[in-house]
């Protein structure tokens, strides 16, 4: 089976606002699938439903063939979902190292280990060091998270998701507010990530999206108006009208 994440007829309303209106969507192995759409289209709400923070009104979410939409957040994480937050959300009084260590404790189910020091667990520490390498955060390892720059905190968010060795990774605007050269670096690192784990990417920067996405879905007012290969979406008239603002 080529599709790792399948969303069927997912609906969610907040009062009169239809944040998701019968959304059908799939993520294939080995791809970066970008989800684009104007502000308030319902992109974050979709990610929150996939991860379990918000319960859908109806519809289903299949991860690797398994229905997960009735599970809570921690269970879904352990089943292989990982996400980053649109507004960076790390443990601010922990160091970079401790943040990553927490993620590994979580995914390795070590949170009920009482008497050994967390930092002397060789297996966990080895994995943390690997993630530090991959995300180029080794030098900032002992820095407390509040003192990180915005870009570094974004990198840490991604590191936290990677630390979970997920089957699917959901990134909610991972490049928002970053400078041009850091975005270039990030683009490269996403190509590396994609080789290991498929990515659902929410992104506003169209240059980035067209440069790295394999497929693109366009969400407007809670509905997917188009899905397709990047070059087709660029040509799609409806997309141009609804989202890119070109006629």
């Amino acid at each position: 089976m080529n599709e790792i994440l399948v969303i069927e007829d997912l609906s969610k309303s907040f009062g009169a606002v239809m944040a998701s209106d019968k959304v059908n969507f799939s993520l294939k192995r080995g791809e970066i699938h970008a989800l684009i759409g104007p502000n308030g289209a319902g992109k974050s709400t979709l990610i929150k439903q996939i991860i379990g923070e918000i319960r859908q009104d109806s519809g289903s979410i299949l991860l690797d063939g398994l229905e997960v939409s009735n599970q809570n957040v921690p269970t879904r994480i352990r089943l292989g979902l990982a996400r980053t937050f649109q507004i960076t959300n790390v443990i601010s009084d922990f160091s970079v190292f401790q943040n990553l260590l927490l993620a590994l404790i979580g995914i390795e189910k070590k949170e009920f280990t009482f008497f050994s020091k967390a930092v002397s667990n060789k297996l966990l520490v080895e994995k943390v060091n690997k993630i530090l390498d991959e995300t180029e955060l080794s030098e900032k390892k002992d820095e407390v998270a509040v003192r990180l720059s915005h870009g570094e905190r974004r990198q840490l968010e991604i590191g936290l998701a990677l630390a979970l060795s997920p089957k699917v990774i959901l990134l909610d605007e991972p490049m928002a507010g970053l400078s041009v050269d850091i975005i270039e670096k990030m683009k490269k690192s996403f190509m590396k990530i994609k080789a290991k784990v498929p990515v659902l990417l929410i992104e506003h920067d169209m240059d980035v999206v067209f440069a790295i996405a394999d497929r693109i879905s366009v969400l407007v007012n809670g509905t997917i108006v188009a899905t397709g290969a990047a070059r087709d979406i660029r040509m799609n008239r409806e997309v141009k009208k609804a989202y890119l603002g070109i006629d």
Binding site: V73, I77, F85, N89, I91, G106, L164
Partner: peptide, 15 residues
């Protein structure tokens, strides 16, 4: 970690 940031703790698989 649970002291201030429950969402982060949940999102690494811990209840």
């Amino acid at each position: 970690a649970s002291r201030y940031n429950l969402d982060r703790v949940k999102s690494v698989g811990i209840t």
